[in-house]
Design a binder for these strands. Structure first.
Length: 426
DNA sequence: TCTGGGGTCCTAGGACCC
DNA sequence: TCTGGGGTCCTAGGACCC
């Protein structure tokens, strides 16, 4: 059996933890640049605040109802996420936890007898809440897809324990699937949902009865086949090895305001490269390919219409590297190539791929080996920036003024990761 | 009149997820 | 004045190989 544990309105819950006066009050958290609403509490949902809706379109409801608004504070969320995941590892054993996202983890519960699943799920929920202060929902079922269905229903469950649902017999599964629209099934996005409704398939139970060959043709090949199997309690999406590293690392941002000059684009690209390189070193990888992209939207003085266009350039390296300076040297010429004067730039990004373990970097015939020293330098820079302040030490190419930096006007303090922002008890 | 079969690797693009 | 950021997996099709 598998479980999915998911933190309720995670970002909002993190904010509430340090502002207890917000308990039972509507709260929303905004995306970078304060653009969209990316987390909202039940109270905010009830007021009609949409998910992923632009902030400015909801400003009216928010102001009228005194909704608490926060810019996203990833230092805080990341730290609390780690605490939740550590608790889960302690509860069921490290090898049985797959961290799926910042606020979700799959658990393998194969060692727990069926008649004890309910009690185990309740204990998991209670313990996480007591130890971290973050409320979670737990769904348990024979497959990952069904556990997601259970988790979703647990939030509205009136009969059982709210926030816990175990689906372990065929009739319970049938009933749960009948209550679940295809749109709400993990693996069915907007496109497929539309197609399914047109075919007359509206709920999960109907979908589970479709032949696999039909799914192969219409729902993305083997992905669709797996989905049907999972709905029929045949587990075929395995738990992932926790030691797996990422295959691609990206750092991309909207600018705080439109940018027109190549110097600013280059500063941003250098800054994002440095950030991506940090992530790269954190998982002990090195990259062999770097891609830069920019998003433009019309040109200077043109009336604003949102129809973004993106352009890419990439380069591959003779030898894998995790050195920020080297990566910036690869990135800047690409940024220059992409730049066309007169256009209005909204966003830029850097993507590192072709990742290999940094212990097995292939040396090239044409480079000298000064890499040990570089590695020590990078480690030192990372330590300083992590423990003190982002970009305390940075490359000059990243710029000094940085007019393009994103807006974060309502960010709370980083209560758990910065000495100078620690939570204070009066 | 007629032109094989079986692979691998890479990239772009589509779909999905939180 | 204005719409986030970071990932995964799969497929099709082209280039290339023997």
């Amino acid at each position: 059996m598998k479980a999915i544990v998911d933190c309720n309105s995670f970002y909002c819950s993190c904010e509430r933890l340090f502002k207890p006066e917000l308990k039972d009050k509507p709260v929303v958290v905004l995306s970078n640049n304060d653009g969209c609403i990316i987390s909202r509490t039940d109270e905010a949902k009830k007021l009609g605040v949409g998910m992923a809706a632009p902030y400015y379109q909801n400003k009216d409801i928010i102001e009228k109802n005194d909704v608490a608004v926060f810019s996203s504070n990833y230092h805080l969320y990341g730290d609390l996420s780690r605490r939740v995941m550590d608790t889960l590892r302690w509860l069921v054993g490290e090898e049985n936890v797959e961290v799926y996202s910042v606020d979700e983890a799959f658990l393998s519960l194969d060692t727990i007898p069926p008649d004890q699943l309910q009690a185990a799920a309740v204990r998991i929920k209670k313990t996480v809440e007591e130890w971290t202060g973050i409320a979670v929902s737990v769904g348990v079922a024979p497959t990952k897809v069904l556990s997601k269905v259970a988790n979703r229903l647990s939030k509205k469950d009136k009969r059982g324990t709210k926030g816990v649902m175990v689906l372990n017999d065929t009739s319970a599964i049938k009933q749960a699937l009948e209550m679940t629209l295809v749109d709400d099934i993990w693996g069915v996005g907007r496109r497929y949902a539309m197609k399914l409704h047109q075919t007359g398939i509206d709920n999960g139970w109907q979908l589970s009865k479709m032949p696999e060959e039909w799914a192969r043709k219409n729902l993305g090949g083997v992905v669709g086949v797996r989905l049907i199997k999972e709905l029929n309690s045949i587990a075929c999406i395995p738990m992932k090895d926790p030691l797996e590293t990422k295959k691609m690392i990206a750092t991309t941002r909207m600018f705080g305001k439109p940018v027109f000059e190549v110097t600013e684009i280059k500063e941003a690209v250098a800054t994002y490269t440095a950030r991506a390189a940090e992530k790269l070193r954190r998982q002990f990888s090195a990259a062999t390919m770097l891609q830069v992209f920019v998003v433009t939207n019309g040109s200077r003085n043109e009336k604003y219409e949102y129809s973004p266009q993106s352009r890419y350039q990439y380069t591959t390296f003779p030898k894998a590297t995790a050195d920020t300076g080297e990566l910036i040297r690869y990135a800047l010429p690409l940024a220059e190539k992409l730049y066309q004067p007169g256009l209005k730039y909204l966003k830029a990004g850097v993507i590192l791929s072709g990742l290999v373990p940094d212990s097995s970097i292939q040396s090239s015939l044409f480079t000298r080996d000064v890499d040990h020293k570089k590695r020590y330098l990078m480690d030192a820079v990372d330590n300083i920036n992590f423990s003190h302040r982002d970009d305390m030490v940075k490359y000059l190419a990243s710029g000094l003024k940085r007019n393009w930096k994103m807006r974060q006007e309502m960010r709370s303090k980083r209560y758990t990761t910065r000495w100078d922002e620690l939570y204070e008890i009066m």
